[in-house]
Design a protein around this nucleic acid. Structure first.
Length: 271
DNA sequence: ACGAAGCCCTGCAAGC
DNA sequence: TGCTTGCAGGGCTTCG
């Protein structure tokens, strides 16, 4: 499940293969993703040179001369640079052929991902315009979380996973950051002190940054190979570890459902 | 404005 | 062994 670190790592991995190349052909085998792939994507993108590649939340943006292609990986999507000799497999929904002769290939078994076309003013797109700050940016602070959360009764874990509050913090890293900060995921967002929010903001940044650094090694092979993304499972303290001992105090980690998402925490360390 | 539930989809695991 | 069922999950959309 690509979380922000995987998207960032994907972006860094494919970027050198994209910059300065032209898109020579767009092949959409399956347009029925989370939203339909724009029918005129090929018409818009073919012949255009790639100017830059960046990320906003978990959206990857490929900027062309006349607009940008925006991709979301959903929870099972991947983008890989492949040689044309690599056979197309099931769930390979979109190919962007590049002037280098290589292909940027999108695969997504569960089709939760999406392709969008952004015209000139990219950030005015409705999916981008209402996003909260990037968690790794200086705009994202404990003070910001404190101010934004006043009067909110929602569980802090859901609060963190709300993209209007902060962009791109998914289930895994919400669990991990709350554990690291010692905050129980069910606690009302409006009932967390500024001191604890400062610590939480630091923990979110730390856990994302660490995963990006690990992702740099786990996901290094973007050309050929299997391209399988590691889930950084070895680095996780609580996610997927329900029933196992807390790495800090040894008590059995508990799992509950918050907002239909699995939430794992230590009932001793997290208050 | 806020919060909770619904929905899209497939692979995998568990149950019969 | 082979089927059926349930579940997971990002995050936008809809409903209350």
């Amino acid at each position: 499940m690509p979380e922000l670190p995987e998207v960032e790592t994907t972006m860094r991995g494919i970027k050198p293969h994209l910059l300065g190349r032209k898109i020579t052909q767009v092949l959409v085998r399956e347009p029925r993703l989370r939203w339909p792939v724009p029918h005129n994507l090929g018409q818009l993108a073919t012949g255009q040179q790639i100017q830059s590649v960046d990320r906003r939340a978990k959206y990857l943006k490929i900027h062309l001369g006349n607009g940008a292609i925006m991709v979301h990986l959903g929870m099972s999507g991947s983008l890989r640079i492949v040689d044309p000799k690599v056979p197309v497999q099931k769930h390979d929904h979109v190919d962007l052929n590049l002037s280098s002769g290589l292909i940027l290939r999108y695969r997504d078994p569960r089709k939760f991902g999406s392709f969008h076309w952004l015209d000139g003013n990219a950030d005015s797109h409705p999916l981008l315009s209402s996003l909260g700050p990037e968690p790794l940016s200086s705009d994202f602070t404990g003070q910001y979380l404190f101010d934004t959360s006043r009067g909110r009764k929602v569980a802090i874990k859901n609060f963190l996973m709300n993209s209007h509050v902060v962009a791109g913090v998914g289930n895994i890293y919400a669990n991990e950051a709350l554990f690291m900060a010692g905050i129980r995921p069910t606690r009302a967002a409006g009932n967390v002190s500024l001191t604890r929010y400062r610590r939480l903001a630091d923990c979110i940044k730390a856990v994302l940054q660490a995963a990006i650094e690990k992702g740099g090694t786990t996901l290094r092979d973007f050309v050929g190979g299997t391209g399988e993304a590691g889930y950084f499972a070895h680095a996780l303290n609580v996610y997927g570890r329900s029933g196992y001992p807390c790495p800090v105090c040894g008590r059995r980690l508990r799992e509950i459902r918050i907002g239909q998402r699995g939430s794992v925490f230590c009932s001793r360390c997290q208050t």
